[in-house]
Computed example of a mutant assay.
Amino acid sequence: MSFARRFGHVFPRRPHSVWFALATGILVTLAVAAGVLGPVLALVGSTIGAVPLAPFPYAAVTITVIAGYALAAGLLALILRIRNGPLAWILAVAAVVAALIVSVYPLFPLATAATDTAGDAIPVVVDWVNRVRALLP
């Protein structure tokens, strides 16, 4: 006889839906990290490598991505504390949405940095066009 039954402590078992929600949340969050965050970071890295003077906030993006994935991990860990299937699925979906949002987030500072760099380059290009036009008959 188990310790819990011997002393009158009987805890209800978790429904299978809670375990399925946890497993699905973990797998989809890992898929988002590999399928979305990986290519986004590769795009950001290649763009910053091509335009090294672009003002990109590395620290802010890093902290945001780490905090977002920590939030997703916390939501998934919270599933272990509950015994309600629908609530477990809500937490799993919230974890995946949080992971998806912070995976796409680095594109916004990159777009802002690229716009600032393009804004600085436009007067130079216009000046070159005017010089070439002045040389033509």
Rank of each mutant, 00 (worst) to 15 (best):
I101W: 15
A111N: 04
I66L: 14
Y58G: 02
P39L: 08
L87H: 11
L91S: 03
V61S: 13
A114N: 02
W19F: 13
G68A: 14
V40Q: 01
G49P: 12
I66F: 14
V44W: 09
T64L: 15
G85Y: 00
V102I: 11
R81T: 15
V28L: 06
P55V: 07
A59F: 15
I90W: 10
V40P: 01
L27R: 04
L100I: 03
G25H: 01
T117P: 00
A33T: 05
V65T: 04
L53T: 10
W89G: 11
V65M: 02
R81C: 04
L100S: 15
V32Q: 02
L110Q: 10
L53A: 09
I82Q: 09
T115F: 12
P39F: 06
A72E: 07
T64H: 15
A111E: 05
L53I: 13
A34G: 06
V36H: 00
R83C: 09
A92F: 05
V102D: 07
A98N: 12
V93S: 00
I66D: 07
Y58K: 02
V44A: 09
G49E: 13
Y69M: 05
G35W: 00
A31T: 12
A111F: 10
V28Y: 00
L100K: 03
I63Y: 06
L91Q: 02
I26C: 00
D116R: 14
I90S: 14
I101N: 11
T112D: 03
L87S: 12
S103H: 03
I79N: 06
P39N: 12
V40Y: 01
L107T: 09
A92V: 01
I101L: 15
A113K: 08
A72C: 11
L27T: 14
T112A: 05
V51K: 02
Y69H: 09
L22M: 01
T117K: 03
I82G: 04
I79D: 01
L22I: 02
V96M: 03
L100G: 10
A92D: 02
L43A: 13
T117A: 10
L100Y: 14
V44S: 10
L53R: 08
A94W: 05
P57G: 12
L71G: 08
R83N: 11
A31C: 08
I101D: 14
A31K: 07
L80H: 04
G74K: 11
L30A: 08
R81P: 09
P55L: 11
L75I: 06
